[in-house]
């Protein structure tokens, strides 16, 4: 909070995401900030600034050298035909991007990412919200359902496992023969086994299932924390007014949880654009069968570290970067909504 106070007199704005509460907040913040300014001479402000800058310099420098600079270099590598071993890559201008436009596998991957971008957050949030609601307010007495503490721990398990382990685990679950967890009962019943990972029409949905399975636990915990901060009286009041669980959820929980849902949405969207390990480890032909599960990150990896086309892979990386930025900007804009103060 101290930094915010120091900045306010200059901007005159209070950082609040939505418009509804802004006026009230400003009215509250101004007198406090004004009071501080009259008491503190400019010299001390400068000393404070130096103090803060001193703390910030090291991390900002590290960030610039190890995060921003490589990012920037990816842009310049994308304009070369660098194959990874040469000391002097050739500049080819926008050739890589022109080639990318006609690369059908890459666009298949983009399509899969787009589908994940819609479905992964939607399914994960829907499932996590309903679980979290059951754990916190779904019980008969207004609390969680019976055994909710136990479930809370169990739901979090997938989050603790490394992605590669999850992928290997599900490889066994999806095995197409009698040793597969899902196919063994089918075979025992005399049915044809399902090629969860080997049928191009099914493989993508298997991947989506794994991704949702892995993500849900974390969002159950996140939403539970959000729900815990909603005052009990609101539920009680609504219940006295005759609201059932469905109404409670849509009229009380969801509106008051909107900020958390929005954050979850953005996290999951970025995760959907970044999917890699599950696809790479789990699927045949790494993104197959027949490119039916491939994603942008897998194509970048394949082109960089298997075909040694670093220039081309960097061009893909640049495209992915713009997709991610565009998504973040669009998500922030679309999910903007009046905030409920309580």
């Amino acid at each position: 909070m101290p930094e915010r106070d120091a900045r306010e007199p200059v901007t005159g704005r209070t950082p609040v995401l939505a418009g509804a509460g802004e006026k009230g907040r400003n009215a509250m913040a101004r007198p406090a900030a004004g009071g501080r300014r009259s008491a503190a001479p400019r010299r001390i402000d400068a000393a404070r600034a130096r103090f803060i800058a001193g703390f910030l310099a090291a991390p900002v420098l590290l960030y610039a050298v190890y995060v921003i600079a490589p990012y920037a270099q990816a842009f310049s590598i994308a304009l070369t035909d660098w194959r990874g071993v040469s000391a002097s890559p050739r500049f080819v201008g926008l050739e890589n991007f022109r080639r990318l436009a006609g690369d059908s596998v890459f666009w298949t991957a983009v399509g899969h990412n787009a589908l994940l971008l819609v479905l992964l957050p939607l399914l994960t949030i829907a499932i996590a919200l309903s679980f979290a609601f059951l754990l916190n307010a779904g019980g008969a007495n207004g609390g969680g359902v019976a055994g909710s503490r136990f479930y809370r721990v169990v739901f979090f398990f997938p989050q603790v496992l490394a992605v590669a382990i999850v992928a290997v685990l599900f490889q066994q679950v999806f095995r197409p023969d009698g040793s597969g967890m899902l196919n063994a009962p089918l075979i025992a019943l005399g049915l044809e086994p399902v090629g969860f990972l080997s049928d191009p029409g099914v493989a993508f949905w298997s991947i989506l299932g794994v991704l949702v399975w892995q993500a849900v636990g974390f969002y159950v915990v996140l939403f539970s924390a959000g729900m815990a901060s909603i005052p009990r009286e609101m539920y009680e009041a609504a219940r006295i007014d005759g609201a059932g669980p469905g109404r409670l959820f849509f009229r009380i929980t969801l509106p008051l949880l909107w900020d958390t849902v929005q954050v979850g949405w953005i996290y999951l969207g970025i995760a959907a654009l970044d999917v890699f390990a599950v696809v790479w480890v789990m699927t045949p032909e790494r993104g197959g069968p027949d490119h039916s599960t491939t994603v942008m990150a897998a194509e970048i990896y394949r082109n960089a570290f298997q075909y040694f086309r670093f220039g081309y892979a960097s061009a893909m990386g640049v495209v992915l970067f713009f997709f991610t930025v565009a998504f973040a900007a669009a998500a922030l804009r679309l999910s903007r909504r009046e905030r409920v103060e309580y």
């Binding site: 050298v65 921003i68 600079a69 490589p70 270099q73 310049s76 590598i77 660098w82």
Partner: peptide, 13 residues
């Protein structure tokens, strides 16, 4: 970003 690129050369050969 472009300015930072000139600062270091850790990814490019």
């Amino acid at each position: 970003l472009p300015a930072a690129g000139a600062l270091s050369a850790c990814a490019t050969p």
